[in-house]
Design a protein around this nucleic acid. Structure first.
Length: 262
DNA sequence: CGTGGCTCCTGGCGGC
DNA sequence: TGCCGCCAGGAGCCAC
């Protein structure tokens, strides 16, 4: 349910725990559409015979090292990596299938085809080319302040701007503004430094909680807005009916009482 | 620079 | 049952 950076971190751990140190026997691209600036031939040449040996995450991107070349995976709204044992059936919407010499496979399952996979020689260069901001899970207050202080637009779209900070999506952005007691349409230039720091601190706390809860397979705290993301459901803080509004083209759930419209 | 609107894509759901 | 519009955890592009 809680997606975005926490899901990708979970995906990373899944790949890290299952897919390293096994020679790649073959690479099947079922759907070229999801390839980003690469071809099935290039992927096959780069990976066949090699072993994955490291995984990293930056924002919503998962990087998998093949000891030289790196895969960069983005999961769109519905993608996920799935490690399969011998008899396991490949997921219905597998777009890329990497088969290992030990008869196991790593599938890139992506029903809506909004995810993509790139091949790169290095993470840093890739991040720079995509102009991604610092990872939301490790950005420092100084970095955050430097990037957000000068902005003039609305808070929520800024939090979701991957060029500003990488990893926050629609649900977490809603959660951040809710827990900070701000409206998603609050403008950044009207926040004082203490309030901006509160946004930063809240963001870090939510990401940490979401990652640790998902790994422990526990639910998010009931005090979280994300748990009550339905129009008309009571606000977990004050009981007022939640509203669904549209902010910069995306659905936002807000408590009209706790989050005063600017 | 910021924003609104459009695009890409597929699947699920509710309404008629 | 079928069809239709709307919705969904993402993001790029373009016009203003």
């Amino acid at each position: 349910m809680m997606p975005e950076l926490p899901s990708v971190e979970l995906f990373r751990r899944h790949v890290e725990d299952t897919s390293l140190h096994q020679p790649v026997a073959r690479v099947d691209v079922m759907d070229e559409y999801i390839l980003d600036e690469t071809t099935p031939e290039q992927l096959e040449d780069a990976l066949t015979g090699r072993c994955f040996n490291d995984t990293r995450r930056h924002g919503k991107y998962l990087f998998i090292s093949a000891g030289g070349p790196w895969l960069a995976m983005h999961f769109g709204m519905t993608g996920r990596p799935v490690y399969l044992h011998g008899g396991d059936e490949t997921p219905e919407h597998t777009r890329l299938l990497i088969s290992f010499a030990n008869n196991r496979r790593l599938a890139f399952d992506c029903p809506r085809r909004l995810g993509h996979i790139a091949l790169t020689t290095g993470m840093a260069a890739f991040i720079q080319r995509k102009n991604l901001g610092p990872d939301a899970g490790s950005i420092t207050w100084e970095q955050f302040q430097r990037r957000f202080q000068p902005r003039r637009g609305m808070l929520k779209p800024a939090l979701m701007d991957q060029h500003a900070v990488a990893g926050v999506g629609n649900i977490i952005a809603d959660e951040i503004v809710f827990q900070t007691g701000l409206h998603p349409e609050a403008t950044i230039d009207r926040l004082d430094s203490a309030m901006l720091h509160d946004v930063y601190r809240t963001m870090r706390g939510i990401l940490q909680t979401a990652v640790s809860r998902r790994i422990a397979r526990e639910a998010l705290p009931g005090s979280y807005l994300a748990v009550h993301r339905n129009e008309g459901e009571p606000c977990p803080r004050c009981g007022t009916s939640l509203q669904r509004i549209r902010v910069s083209g995306r659905s936002s759930y807000v408590c009209p009482r706790c989050q005063e419209k600017p």
